[in-house]
Design a protein around this nucleic acid. Structure first.
Lengths: 270, 270
DNA sequence: CGCTGGATTGATTACCTTCAAGGTTGGTGG
DNA sequence: CCACCAACCTTGAAGGTAATCAATCCAGCG
């Protein structure tokens, strides 16, 4: 597959990050290729992304090798076994990574959002499916550009190493959850993690009580993430609700009434 | 903790790998520190280890920064949350990595053996417990030596990256197993993986029929690896035995009678 | 307003866990 | 050589829990 340059109207001109040639991809699924609209340093994902430790000229050079791209809800970024041509950093939106058995059973291996890197467990070919849950913007680099950056920017390489370590730890955590936790513990854990990651809850904070947690994914996704059925997910959420630990604003909007309690349940310290 | 030089009788003199000062560690659990007995290139683990891509002087230099150490069956290499001072390559024997809940529930996140690296999901502190299943010899490096090698030997760094990628893929595979596979599929999968890794079975081989699989770990370990109870493990093995897919020479020695069939079961293609 | 997809709730079943009892193996010592 | 013991594995019976099957509810939308 070749990269083919194409003219589009720039959404925002004069960006340093776009110097060095802003190529477009056209023949891909999710073909909403678009120039980056501002400096990488202003990118919503930058602070925690692969490029987090880069700044100034290095960041500009790195940015010139990448480009933003949009995927519609439900759209596929790539499938398992596809040859890995690109890696991605999520700029906005939510992506689910999953793996399937022939008969349709599915395990979601992770949800990726702003700042997260996609392409870690990749050895020439992708090891999972990747789909956009809602509208997703990613920052995309070709594998060769990625390798170039790894060789030339030790800060990128260092950050990648960090991210892989955290990924391994997260996967181990999730193995413990899948193999040994009860449905309540699984749901509680899931909500806690979301609260910590997206609602800025820090466990050491005293008096953390009421937290809004938004779930962009469907109950089916939650079930396939936690190794449960959709019915069990629903029933378990109801159980937590009736216990007063959470409330449901809508199905996707959970209000955690007692984070401390939820956290205890999540860790099996009932 | 300081590295303290100490005299011991060399088991084998004149090794290039021992040049540059063969320091000993003394005050650690599993204190059977010992000089490496031969060139790294002759090490049983070398071909697939972190140092696989090194040779000649580089290998010698790398080897000088490491040393072998022996652990008795059941002995702890380290515990979760311990400050990570060392990384390890398994030279011989089997190590289990596990994670526990407060009430004793345990999930084994992996079995490590010859050539495997221990310390991947480590961010300053270890993310799991590590225990020797049988007598284990490891090649141990301090974190700082490891970092030194990563900076100076791109071959080491490249190999580490490969190993992390494979680790992530293996963990994802195992998540699918834990979350979505039935007990029979789990056991079949486990035996297949063992056959492929330790009995040299390559799936593409035609006529692979009878394979010896040795299980150094207990049924409890298998259960905690697969997210089952020990009884279910036992019953499921019995089921496969009665179906003629495997035979039991002893509890630890399984003879796979029909690898093809076992493999199908493992993948849910019943 | 009715339709549709997703979420919840209900009833039943199957399977795995739990609790409990044998069986086997390997090591020790008389 | 055999008895004894401990650890581990296997097998059995009973019970509980989550899966399955099925119906209802709800929100968004044409």
């Amino acid at each position: 597959m070749a990269l083919n340059a194409e003219n589009t109207t720039a959404q925002n001109g004069g960006s340093v990050a776009n110097e060095g040639g802003c190529q477009r991809f056209n023949s891909m699924p999710g073909n909403g290729a678009q120039p980056k609209t501002n400096y990488c340093s202003a990118c919503a994902a930058h602070k925690t992304a692969l490029c987090a430790k880069l700044s100034g000229e290095e960041l500009a050079e790195f940015g010139a090798l990448s480009q933003h791209k949009t995927f519609a809800p439900g759209q596929t970024l790539f499938n398992e076994f596809d040859e890995a041509r690109y890696y991605y950093t999520v700029v906005s939106g939510d992506v689910r990574l999953s793996r399937m058995l022939d008969d349709g059973r599915r395990q979601i291996t992770g949800f990726k959002s702003k700042g997260d890197f996609i392409g870690l467990g990749t050895d020439g070919h992708f090891s999972s499916d990747a789909e956009a849950i809602n509208e997703v913007v990613v920052c995309q680099f070709t594998v060769s550009n990625m390798n170039h950056s790894l060789e030339n920017f030790s800060a990128v390489q260092g950050r990648l190493m960090e991210m892989m370590q955290h990924e391994v730890i997260a996967l181990q955590d999730h193995m413990l959850l899948l193999g040994r936790k009860t449905p309540v513990e699984k749901i509680a854990n899931f909500l806690c993690e979301r609260a910590k990651k997206y609602a800025g809850v820090h466990p050491e904070d005293e008096m953390v009580q009421e937290v809004d947690v938004f779930l962009p994914m469907s109950r089916t996704d939650v079930a396939d993430f936690l190794g449960l059925t959709i019915e069990t997910v629903s029933r378990t959420i109801t159980k937590l609700r009736k216990a007063g630990v959470i409330e449901l604003e809508t199905a996707q909007h959970v209000v955690v009434k007692d984070f401390e309690e939820l956290s205890m349940i999540a860790d099996g310290e009932v």
